[in-house]
């Protein structure tokens, strides 16, 4: 059991190592197409040039595979080849039920352990050939898929409704407390359900003419990728080679307000990275609330600067949040001992 716990990080890193190129493709292409198009008040990213629209679509296609690949290759690390297919299926379902990358991690582990368990069944020799192409993938997919739909899907949609109501009630109170909470929510699952509730709430307030809710959110959105990118530059010995590469991608994505740039770091070491980015985003958002930063576009990161009120405070808030994130995460992280690579580590 203790052995297995140690291996969990190897499983996570295997999934992450296969996911990183996808995050980089998606993040960089989306960032590039938005950066060349700009962000408009009230509308958000406004990509119109046909070539840039296509580039955006290529990036979006890559992003749509991010969670399935993470789940598929976590399952691969656990169960070898029979894990991949059910893991991919579970990952797509995690996306369908809006469970985000944390849902994908759960799907990957469940698929991997079930596939490995079925692999261990003692079956007659005649049945052996159909196990890996028939029995294992179908049984495992049914199990992990059913779990994602029935056990994870419904509570998530209930939770999202409850959190939205909660934020509505909170918005009557102290703006700085609201910003602290929304900042932490944005960073928590980066594109998952909690992030979406905070983002949608900020965006909804824009259409009601209140810009100071989205302002802190716009700061919180770019803090995780920028913070993690800065962290890899400040303490290179605490990150693997693949993570350092992901760091440059994260910096580019952060500038354009793509929070997902920090997912490779969070998925590889959730217990240290997620609290750090939540803390940094919350502090950044709070500074923005104190500085009465407003944002007229449902989008975040330095790219929204043209449609921001109190620009100087916006920049200060981002810098504070990014610095806090980088220092906290580097304080928590230990130097890496030996490279953990995707292919060879799990069965060596």
């Amino acid at each position: 059991m203790k052995e297995e716990l140690k291996r969990i990080r190897v499983y996570l890193m295997t999934g992450v190592s296969y996911m990183i190129p996808i995050v980089v493709i998606g993040g960089v292409l989306i960032a590039f197409s938005i950066a060349l198009s700009g962000v408009e008040a009230g509308k958000g990213a406004n990509v119109t040039n046909p070539m840039l629209v296509n580039m955006l679509n290529i990036g979006v296609a890559a992003f749509s595979m991010m969670v399935p690949v993470l789940a598929g290759f976590i399952a691969y690390a656990i169960a070898d080849r029979p894990g991949i297919a059910p893991g991919l299926v579970g990952g797509v379902l995690a996306g369908n039920v809006k469970a985000g990358f944390l849902g994908g991690i759960i799907a990957g582990f469940i698929a991997g352990y079930i596939a490995r368990w079925i692999k261990g069944w003692k079956v007659p020799k005649q049945l052996k050939p159909v196990m890996p192409i028939f029995v294992i993938p179908i049984l495992t997919s049914l199990a992990v898929g059913g779990l994602m739909i029935y056990v994870i899907g419904t509570p998530i949609s209930n939770l999202m409704t409850a959190m939205t109501d909660w934020l509505k009630a909170m918005s009557m109170g102290n703006a700085v407390v609201l910003a602290l909470i929304m900042g932490a929510m944005i960073a928590f699952d980066m594109g998952g359900p909690v992030n979406k509730v905070a983002f949608m709430f900020g965006a909804a307030m824009i259409s009601e003419g209140v810009f100071t809710v989205m302002g802190p959110v716009a700061v919180a959105i770019c803090v995780p990728p920028l913070g993690m990118g800065l962290a890899t530059l400040l303490a290179p010995n605490k990150y693997t080679e693949t993570e350092k590469d992901a760091g440059y991608g994260a910096l580019a994505m952060g500038m354009i307000g793509i929070t997902e740039g920090a997912i490779p770091f969070a998925a590889g070491d959730p217990l240290k990275v997620i609290p750090s980015i939540m803390f940094g985003s919350a502090i950044g958002a709070a500074v923005a609330a104190i500085g009465k930063v407003g944002d007229h576009a449902p989008h975040g990161g330095p790219i929204v600067l043209p449609v921001v009120d109190n620009r100087l405070m916006f920049i200060i808030a981002v810098l504070v949040g990014v610095t806090v994130t980088a220092f906290v995460v580097n304080y928590l992280k230990k130097p890496v001992t030996g490279e953990i690579s995707g292919d060879n580590s799990f069965s060596a």
Binding site: A79, D80, R81, P82, K119, P132, I133, S347, A348
Partner: peptide
């Protein structure tokens, strides 16, 4: 190295 994964693995 079949579809079930690696079996009878050769150690380093």
């Amino acid at each position: 190295q079949g579809s079930i994964g690696i079996e009878n693995k050769i150690t380093s």
